[in-house]
């Protein structure tokens, strides 16, 4: 077994250990405070932990499946996220062909480009080509009401749910030692998701000052600082799974947690605008796919480009 493989198994075992611990705590809390399921907070916590098991299992299988597994998993996430996003847009009957093209042409092509490692095209396909070509389809339908709003929303949906999501598997294309691409994805996902969880935990423990009460009442200054610092510390401690030195890993972790926080805030603003609490209902306790992915979405492209630039890779 090579280095990268054994590191990957170590990481998976480590996450498994954290989840076992979380499950035991959740079980003990439920036994003590919510034996009949009367505390919705504890029930929600346990729903979330169960969903984490499923998500971890899906990720672990994808990682062990290598390139194909990771691209397939994130293409499916992208599909689910795009479906949630498009549902909340103003797209009408006149945009039917545009939507069909977004789901059945743009999305598969983007992930295929990542698959064949055509960096020059997958980094501009949606921002340039789709941006210019897609509105033509809607224009041909002849419906001008809300036209600008409709095409802007659809482009936004594609940027967030397809372009940004595709930058997670694109990390596999970076020119780092063989087998380490998967670990880079694991690093990103672990730091970003831990940061979300730890911000929530710190916020619950010592949170006093709300950052953006209108957007996201649960986000507090204390939670934000405590969560991002502790996630950065954990990210630094995980430097061995990345091509970074400990100091570089610390900088990268800080960058990831900042972008992740921004992602959560921006996607919340969209939900509030549209008057919904969650993007969907597919993941028990969490909401929709975008609710779980919002921070990853924002962190992935920046993490990808900074890594590519500073380590002169790919």
């Amino acid at each position: 077994m090579d280095d990268a493989r054994s590191d990957l198994l170590t990481v998976i075992a480590g996450i498994g250990g954290v989840l076992v611990f979380a499950s035991v705590v959740g079980w003990a809390l439920a036994r003590r405070y919510s034996p009949q399921g009367e505390s919705s907070a504890i029930e929600n916590l346990n729903d979330r932990i169960r969903a984490w098991w499923v998500m971890t299992l899906a990720l672990a299988l994808a990682f062990l499946g290598g390139h194909v597994g990771v691209i397939a998993l994130f293409a499916l996430c992208s599909f689910a996220a795009l479906r949630e996003f498009m549902t909340l847009t103003n797209a009408t009957r006149a945009d039917h062909n545009t939507l069909a093209a977004a789901f059945f042409i743009v999305l598969p092509v983007q992930f295929w480009l990542v698959w064949i490692k055509w960096y020059g095209l997958y980094s501009i396909f949606i921002p340039v080509y789709v941006f210019l070509l897609l509105p033509i389809i809607s224009a041909l339908a002849g419906e001008t009401r809300n036209y600008l709003i409709r095409i802007a929303e659809m482009q936004w949906a594609l940027m967030i749910c397809v372009f940004c999501v595709s930058h997670v598997p694109a990390l596999l294309n970076l020119n780092i030692p063989a087998g380490r691409g998967v670990l880079l994805i694991a690093f990103l996902v672990i730091v970003v998701q831990l940061s979300d969880v730890l911000q929530y935990v710190w916020g619950k423990l010592i949170g006093r000052h709300k950052i953006a009460p209108k957007l996201s009442p649960s986000k507090t200054v204390e939670g934000f600082i405590g969560g991002s610092l502790s996630a950065t510390l954990i990210g630094t401690a995980l430097w061995w799974m990345t091509p970074f030195t400990p100091l570089q890993a610390a900088g990268m972790s800080l960058l990831i947690t900042m972008m992740g926080f921004a992602g959560g805030l921006v996607m919340s603003a969209i939900k509030r605008d549209r008057g919904v609490k969650d993007w969907g209902h597919s993941i028990a306790g969490h909401g929709g796919f975008i609710d779980r992915l919002d921070s990853v979405l924002f962190a992935a492209p920046i993490f990808f480009h900074v890594t590519r630039y500073f380590w002169k890779l790919g």
Binding site: R83, M86, H96, L99, F103, F104
Partner: peptide, 11 residues
């Protein structure tokens, strides 16, 4: 929508 052949994924 009436007349469309391909369903578009929306929730």
């Amino acid at each position: 929508p009436k007349g469309a052949l391909i369903p578009v994924p929306l929730m």
